[in-house]
Design a protein around this nucleic acid. Structure first.
Length: 481
RNA sequence: GGCGACGUGGCCAAGUGGUAAGGCAAGGCUCUGCAAAAGCCUGAUGCGCCGGUUCAAAUCCGGCCGUCGCCUCCA
């Protein structure tokens, strides 16, 4: 079955055919590193992480580029955001930017998001941006006004094709401050003249200044992916003006189609309102990770289709956590049973069911990355796996290994919600495991002697240390919570 | 006002023409020394409302109501 993607450009679900067979060139709008990343960022980048993982799982080679915006853009007040922060903290702008860029990567790593192949920074691509602006001027799509360069929207025939905006609709009643030097209010800056107080500034043919908000993506996408590439992603909230401007600039400068498929992710809301820097209602990824495992945050983010908004709440995360624990519990049990399992083909009847799970999984993921349905299928599989593992009859090594492999592959490699087997953790962990085993055995002895008071005391004491013991027909298993 | 998305059981959420997945919560049960875990059973005669098309509509069309996003920095 062929992969289908809902292309925002054209607003329909279409078969995905990369420009070069077997290869996907992909660009996703990255963060502005001026503050800690919040769980809205987590939702967006988890979505694209799974998309990239699945494309690769499908056998495609993917070149994934995601920018880091570190040049700063204009506030309503005209003050540069990063400068403002730098002034507050009495630090150099690049120091601020470096700090939050590192923090961003740290957060993404914590969430199990695989790093993009290239994370280009706007500040490192000033020459490329200047060059593109020059091209736009040569072609009559941009003009110089008072040391700044603006894109002439009226010269871009396709302006509005992604967001369905018509220039005429944008005019009157806009809250935007109409700058005198602009020919039309909808024109946007490609290059801004730096006022004397600006620290972030670069030389350019038009004097010292800094690049406009949109040009970095156009310039960096071109540099690493070419004039025309396959997939462009980002949050829906950037569809206008940012994405629209990217298209206009790139297509006017390159005289070639920009991105062929556009995938936009729905926003994350809190109490029904979008989480954003400007509203100050954001929960940082670092804070969220104090309360929830990364796999739970991923499960929560993937429980609705990527294009839909998702509302954050502790109740919702809690529900996701319980649902996730059921999935993980089945794999964990299979892993625990493996060492003592007989080397027979007991349970091999289950192998076709696992093959079916793979087939079903691919079918729903091929349908525009339907992760909620994929998770639902894993839940159904889990019910059957639990029935098998708790049936009382022996399950052979081969069957257990196949079960574990299926979860590792679909839940682990693709969705990133099933962690790899518990890490060894070195000598201390081994000693700890040995000690726990000793206590569990002591409790077993007490149970055998029907000394319930003692066995319950040991169980409670372990529970107080977050070690959960469960008595099964075939013995007692324990896990660290 | 314009552009866009959405409205499915108590909550979350799949489903884009053929008779409502899955999870959470709730109740009952099995298993268990008790637990825990797991499993089984129960739950929308109806998918915001009103019309229309069709043999057939949650799914298509029209209208209305409501929620959210964007139009200003934002993932």
């Amino acid at each position: 079955m062929a992969l289908k993607i809902y292309n925002v450009l054209g607003r329909e679900k279409v078969e995905f055919q990369p420009q070069h067979e077997g290869h996907v060139n992909m660009y996703v709008c990255g963060p502005t590193v001026q503050d800690y990343a919040h769980i809205g960022h987590a939702k967006t980048y988890i979505a694209f992480d799974v998309i990239v993982r699945y494309l690769r799982y499908s056998g495609l080679s993917v070149l994934y580029v995601q920018n880091i915006t570190d040049v700063g853009h204009l506030l309503d007040s005209g003050e540069d955001r990063i400068l403002k922060k730098a002034a507050q903290l009495q630090a150099k702008p690049m120091q601020i930017v470096e700090f939050y860029a590192r923090s961003y990567f740290e957060d993404m790593d914590s969430l199990g998001i695989k790093r993009p192949d290239i994370s280009p920074r706007a500040s490192g691509h000033i020459p490329e941006q200047i060059k593109m602006i020059e091209t736009l001027m040569e072609r009559g799509h941009a003009y110089l006004a008072d040391g700044s360069v603006y894109f002439d929207v009226a010269s871009a025939p396709n302006y509005g094709k992604l967001s369905n905006r018509r220039i005429t609709e944008l005019e009157a009643g806009s809250r935007e401050v109409v700058r005198d030097e602009k020919r039309n209010p909808e024109d946007f800056a490609l290059w801004k003249k730096a006022e004397p107080e600006h620290i972030l500034r670069w030389d350019s043919p038009w004097g010292e200044g800094f690049p406009g908000w949109h040009i970095e993506c156009s310039a960096m996408a071109k540099k690493y992916l070419g004039e025309t590439f396959d997939l462009h992603g980002g949050g829906v909230d950037n569809i206008f003006p940012h994405n629209e401007c990217e298209i206009a600039q790139s297509e006017c400068a390159n005289d070639a189609e920009f991105a062929r498929y556009w995938m936009l992710v729905g926003s994350l809301t809190v109490d029904g309102v979008k989480m954003s820097k400007s509203l100050g209602n954001f929960i940082t990824i670092k804070d969220a990770l104090k309360k929830y495992r990364p796999e739970v945050i991923r499960t929560f983010s993937l429980s609705a289709h990527y294009s839909n908004p998702v509302d954050f709440s502790d109740d919702a995360l809690q529900a996701a956590a319980v649902g996730w624990e059921r999935l993980y519990g089945a794999v964990r049990l299979a892993r625990q049973m493996l060492p003592a399992a007989p080397a027979t083909d007991a349970g091999s009847d289950f192998l076709p069911r696992l093959e079916q799970a793979r087939t079903d999984f691919r079918a729903v993921m091929d349908d525009d990355f339907n992760t909620p349905k994929a998770i639902a299928q894993l839940q159904e599989l889990t019910r059957e796996v639990n029935t098998l593992l708790n049936s009382g009859s022996p399950v052979g090594k081969a069957a257990l290994e196949a079960i574990i492999a299926t979860y590792n592959e679909l839940g682990g490699d693709v969705l990133g919600i099933i962690p790899a087997a518990e890490a060894g953790g070195g000598a201390n962990a081994e000693r700890e495991a040995g000690l726990i085993k000793l206590i569990v055995e002591a409790r077993q002895a007490a149970r055998k002697a029907k000394n319930w008071a003692e066995s319950d005391r040991l169980r409670d004491a372990l529970a107080a240390l977050d070690v959960i013991v469960e008595d099964r027909a075939d013995g007692t298993v324990w896990r660290v919570n």
